[in-house]
Design a protein around this nucleic acid. Structure first.
Lengths: 162, 162
DNA sequence: GGTTTTCGGATATGATATGTCCTTAATTCC
DNA sequence: GGAATTAAGGACATATCATATCCGAAAACC
């Protein structure tokens, strides 16, 4: 049970987009080169963010992506679910229904007890991600990343933002 | 990010094993027929449980599997990790290291902030599973499954246990 | 009009989950 | 002792999905 690498890419890209000056866009090409990622494939992750209305896009030169909301209004779960999907990690195939001792046509009143427990754990995972805002990540990064690297990184991307 | 179906199978099998009389074994064949699962493939899941020392085995007729510990000494996480593995759901490829603005040979003092958040969510998932004991599942099942189905199911499997 | 960009479709490839088959060794039953 | 049964595990086949690349269309900018 491993998350797509696109999840990692999307989170890092959102962190960069969160630090952009108001109104500026950043292209797939710039984000791919900054992170050393395949441009065409990263594009799919960014499209997922766009479909989830987490980012806005514009075409043409100096076009690209910017956040559609303030970093404090975006949480981790939104980003993760945008590229990974909203499906639960445990899928119940209801194998209890194959029990040969069950009367024909018997109908369960509740979902399977095994599934309920697994879904509860899934919710705990989602709750944790829901409680972390993109602005929290940006705060941590600006504390931990040395100031000169942090500053020159944004100079670097802005130079490519036209 | 979907768990293997073997996780579901293993959990249901453990629930049945937990209800067996002391000292009795249940074969792969019986467990597979009870749940309507492919015998050969289910065998792989049971082997995983065996390697994790959650179940004990014996060979020959009337052989098979039984729990190696009391149901209250087995939690969900042990079973899930036995078949799914202990690897975290988020793998950090450290793409921050590709940032062209980083000085050559620069070394990070901490793991990536993105990864730390994702791992925290992973821990929340594992904590939830760790807190649920196999005996809790058995308790829920014996409450919710109609008593006659519950009883005839164990008569059915015991008939196949030799 | 030419360039740059997002977006989506089509396709290829590799890894992994799923499923089957077969052999070996141990145990039980007759 | 011999036959039947079982777990264990290796070999193999198949299907699904993640990863990756390429292309064409439409939109924006110069």
């Amino acid at each position: 049970m491993i998350l797509k690498s696109q999840v990692e890419w999307a989170l890092h890209c959102c962190a960069i987009l969160a630090g952009l000056p108001e109104g500026r866009y950043l292209s797939t090409k710039a984000l791919a080169e900054l992170h050393g990622l395949p441009k065409e494939y990263l594009s799919k992750a960014l499209q997922s963010l766009s479909q989830a209305s987490l980012v806005e896009t514009t075409l043409g030169p100096s076009g690209g992506y910017r956040l559609a909301k303030t970093p404090s209004d975006i949480n981790f779960l939104e980003i993760v679910e945008a590229v990974e999907g909203k499906a639960r990690s445990f899928t119940c195939t209801n194998i209890r229904a194959n029990n040969p001792c069950r009367p024909e046509g018997y109908c369960d009143s509740k979902p399977c007890a095994v599934a309920r427990i697994m879904w509860e754990a899934d919710e705990a995972w989602r709750d944790t991600l829901r409680r972390v805002r993109l602005s929290d990540l940006v705060g941590t990064l600006s504390e931990e990343v040395p100031a000169d690297i942090w500053r020159s990184t944004f100079e670097w991307v802005l130079k490519r933002a036209g």
